[in-house]
């Protein structure tokens, strides 16, 4: 009898947990579903009430609009009015966001791997260095945005730093580096020091050991850290909006421009663009899925 009641309680727990997870999944997936559905709706259906759960008149128009290259040349990504409809070209923001996110994530990753190795193996910076690093992240980005804007627009380097790739890559590397160092540090700590000692004993120098032992073993960690910093950079808005936004428009800034006084509320194109914008993240996630699993479960591997 007692056993039965215990089993029943365990079953109850499972049901409760599963229900909670299903509800939570619905809550998180709903906006993505709604965005994708809206991207295939003609403008009459954007505001329809009761809402159309699936488009009644399926259309690719929104995608054509956001992906069309403006007749006035490719330099301007803003607006061209054609009647009541507005054509926004989104190819360039995606390209620019890719360039900025990939370069800053790569730079941050390389720096973080070396920094984290130094902290882990040589105690660089002392015992609390990691925590001090994380403190950097507690500063709100807006505090960084205004002074950086002031510096970047100084006449000597304004040309290189204002509204430019470099002008965003630098602050992106700086803001993601603490996270990247933290993540890489935990992966490097997982590598038993005895492995490195064994290699040293056999005469391997630091560089050889890094190449043959450390780098292959932190591969999954590098992949996970890269995708993490990439997501942070890809979805960054505040710095992209304040330090660039005229010549250089990132995906997030572009997304904000579908709703403005001069263009109205372009839900369809916005949804289409949003759908396109998450493709790199999903693709990256799928590409390194195997590493993601290894990466996130790294600490659980039996040694």
């Amino acid at each position: 009898m007692r056993l039965l009641s215990r089993e029943r309680r365990a079953l109850g727990g499972t049901i409760l947990r599963s229900t909670f997870l299903v509800v939570w999944l619905l809550v998180t997936l709903f906006p993505i579903y709604w965005m994708v559905v809206t991207s295939f709706k003609p403008h009459q259906e954007w505001f329809a009430w009761p809402p159309h759960w699936i488009p009644h008149h399926f259309t690719w128009n929104n995608y054509e609009e956001v992906l069309a290259v403006g007749a006035g040349g490719t330099g301007s990504k803003t607006t061209q009015l054609s009647g009541a409809q507005q054509v926004l070209t989104a190819v360039l923001p995606i390209r620019d966001s890719l360039i900025i996110s990939v370069s800053s994530s790569t730079i941050a990753l390389v720096l973080a791997a070396f920094l984290a190795y130094a902290i882990s193996r040589y105690g660089t910076g002392g015992r609390n260095y990691l925590y001090s690093l994380l403190m950097v992240r507690m500063m709100p980005p807006i505090v960084l945005a205004v002074p950086l804007l002031a510096y970047f627009t100084l006449p000597w380097w304004r040309h290189y730093l204002h509204d430019s790739y470099l002008g965003l890559i630098i602050p992106y590397v700086l803001t993601t580096l603490p996270y990247a160092v933290w993540m890489m540090h935990s992966f490097i700590e997982e590598i038993p020091r005895e492995l490195e000692n064994a290699a040293r004993m056999m005469g391997a120098g630091r560089v050889y050991m890094m190449r043959k032992i450390v780098l292959p073993l932190i591969g999954p960690g590098l992949a996970v850290t890269f995708i993490f910093t990439f997501i942070l950079n890809w979805s960054e808005f505040l710095l992209a909006y304040s330090l660039a936004g005229h010549k250089l428009i990132t995906v997030t800034v572009q997304l904000s421009q579908y709703q403005a006084a001069d263009v109205g509320r372009l839900y369809g194109p916005q949804a289409a663009f949003g759908t396109i914008a998450i493709i790199p993240l999903v693709a990256l996630g799928l590409a390194i899925q195997r590493h993601l699993v290894t990466g996130f479960s790294f600490g659980m591997i039996r040694r």
Binding site: P192, E194, L195, N197, A198, A199, R200, M201, M202, G203, A204, G205, K212, I213, P216, L217, R303
Partner: peptide
């Protein structure tokens, strides 16, 4: 350590997990 002409077997054995036995021995 590498200049002392010593060999060491570690408590954890410290075999390189990403290499085959051959590559471990040949290291």
């Amino acid at each position: 350590p590498g200049e002392r002409d010593l060999g060491m077997v570690f408590q954890s054995l410290a075999l390189f997990p990403h290499m085959t036995v051959f590559d471990n021995i040949a290291f």
